[in-house]
Write a protein that binds this DNA or RNA. Structure first.
Lengths: 342, 342
DNA sequence: CTGAAAGCGCTAACAC
DNA sequence: GTGTTAGCGCTTTCAG
């Protein structure tokens, strides 16, 4: 009754009136604050709420409390299995903590990151998880860092995944160590003439992976046949691989810095009339589902993607004390795409 | 200056003070309301805002305005390529409309949908896009519909993708028609002994797809060898397919109601020592990226997944007049997994 | 065109 | 324990 909103939305005041208690008591009945409420009264309030179909207005709560229960996730492209797996981890962990997740995609353009962050700041998220490929360097770094600092000052805890700059929290993957191990495992299997599809070398993750792989080879006194930058995508890798083959390059194994790229490379090999695995070994990184479905299955480094997301959120939430700080090591998964050679 | 929040957050009041104008004027300078503001003053306000690093508090705006700029997306599992592609479409369209997207995953349990919707209601989203597999039937239907109705009464425009009940908006896929066409195309290629992996027949989408496929066969006076329910996932399809083969069933072609299932079926065929395509044809539905990467590539029905999401959002936003209402037809993509037979 | 002031729905001192 | 009341940051009447 009373001045119930025309829109038909039930407010806490309505509930309080219905239960015959004060606004404050009704509020306390829900989020049992410092002061406790008589059990019987609590029950009466809850009953009224149920009867009226009350649902707290999160926005109003946020304004009154001065903080939201929101965590923002920024990623390149949600349709990419790498990002979507991370997102799944964040969403799951968020749900367990009663947080709502807002999702922001920047596509591949790093300048959209800036406008995205600016727009996001209005939301006053409690936490921000950035799962880009590390384009936090370059010319864009300064304004981005400024925006991030502003966010942090406004109370947002920031964590970057697989990259990061400044003093923000990060969840790191041991890219270099993992690819080193992969390189050694492949040499062990008899490969020696490697082509590296290095992706965008302006980004941190791909360069660490390519660098680690080459370092692994060097630790065995080997040099890659070639390291090709560019094409940080399936089609890009397809193009790069095709061009390499056409130019007469004949590696016995290709390492692509992401599985998505490895799939593109495998397709290029096949398009050139060769057979991945039999004629040219193929290895990737990430262990996305798709590499297990192809035949031969693709050798890769497994990363617990969802766990990465979950851990990032935990890092922003938890006390900084028991911060899981060590870089996550990948697990080399040798598969049919790199059979023992000779 | 003045009573600037201890947290260091700049408020509109701060900006107004800095610019030497009233709160109201500052507000109007931003969202040029009905009343217009002197150009010079507007500029002064904007300059102050820039200087102070002001960012509007979206929560406070929502409370004052009585509506948010938020759209909620509910889906089964964001790591599933089917859902993540749809989500990508929604996110993209939302960004173009200055809306923020909140993401909610229900996993496979339909009862989590209910609690998810309840939690979501607090957010007062302007629009809600539901991209579940249509578990809006069954015993859970009544409470879910009640919750949806409450949401709608609170001002949320609701649109379901690929399913739906009640009077809510929907974006439909012509599942039955598409699978009928697929069935005929396969028969045309010389197949006749079909096994259908029908997934969860309690759900609308899978049952429409399986039904349409069988109808397509019947229109040519054929009956499927078998229609197996259950296993609405990669591993489920793997199990179902393996069991079928072990039981001595020898189809010349398998149709799985989703690509993810088709991949599982292909793996099972291979695990049984047979070769997909050569020994048993394989067809799926959705045209996710992964089916193009496997070899042989899998025949399927292509659906513009991202467009589905974008269209759903547009439906909730736009005037109901030019509602794109017709079901989206899939495109049969014949590939190597179903070569011409005989 | 600009400013003062009344909310929006809720929380959190502060009293009783 | 419970109620009163002053905000939270912003929008929007209502006067000028």
């Amino acid at each position: 009754m009373s001045k119930q909103g025309a829109a038909g939305t039930v407010t806490l005041a309505d509930v309080a009136a219905h239960a015959g208690v004060s606004l404050a008591t009704a509020s306390r009945a829900f989020n049992g604050s410092a002061r406790t409420v008589n059990a019987e009264m609590t029950e009466r309030v809850l009953a009224s709420a149920r009867e009226l179909g009350y649902s707290a207005n999160a926005q109003a709560q946020a304004v009154a409390r001065g903080s939201t229960r929101t965590v923002a996730v920024v990623l390149g492209d949600i349709a990419d299995p790498y990002f979507s797996s991370i997102a799944a981890g964040v969403i799951d962990e968020a749900a367990q903590n009663g947080l709502v997740v807002t999702m922001w995609a920047t596509g591949s353009s790093p300048d959209r990151l800036l406008s995205t962050l600016a727009a996001m700041r209005s939301q006053r998220p409690q936490a921000l998880i950035i799962a880009q490929s590390g384009q936090l360097q370059s010319e864009h770094e300064a304004p981005v860092t400024a925006e991030l600092t502003a966010l942090e000052r406004a109370g947002t805890a920031i964590c970057t995944i697989g990259s990061g700059s400044g003093s923000f929290l990060r969840v790191l993957v041991d890219n270099a160590g993992s690819t080193s191990a992969l390189a050694r495992a492949l040499v062990e299997r008899g490969y020696s003439r490697f082509l590296v599809l290095a992706g965008d070398q302006g980004l941190r993750t791909p360069s660490e992976r390519a660098g680690g792989f080459v370092a692994g080879l060097r630790s065995l006194d080997l040099e890659p046949l070639a390291v090709q930058a560019g094409g940080f995508s399936r089609s890009g890798a397809f193009a790069t691989m095709s061009a390499a083959l056409e130019s007469g390059l004949r590696p016995d194994c290709v390492f692509a810095v992401t599985d998505v790229m490895a799939l593109g490379a495998a397709a290029a090999i096949r398009a050139a009339g060769l057979e991945p695995g039999r004629d040219i070994g193929v290895a990737g990184f990430d262990d996305i589902d798709a590499v297990r479905d192809v035949s031969p299955a693709i050798t890769t480094v497994a990363i617990p993607l969802a766990e990465l997301g979950a851990r990032a959120l935990r890092a922003t939430l938890g006390s900084r004390e028991h911060l899981e700080t060590e870089a996550i090591a990948g697990v080399v998964m040798l598969r049919g795409s790199t059979p023992v050679r000779r």
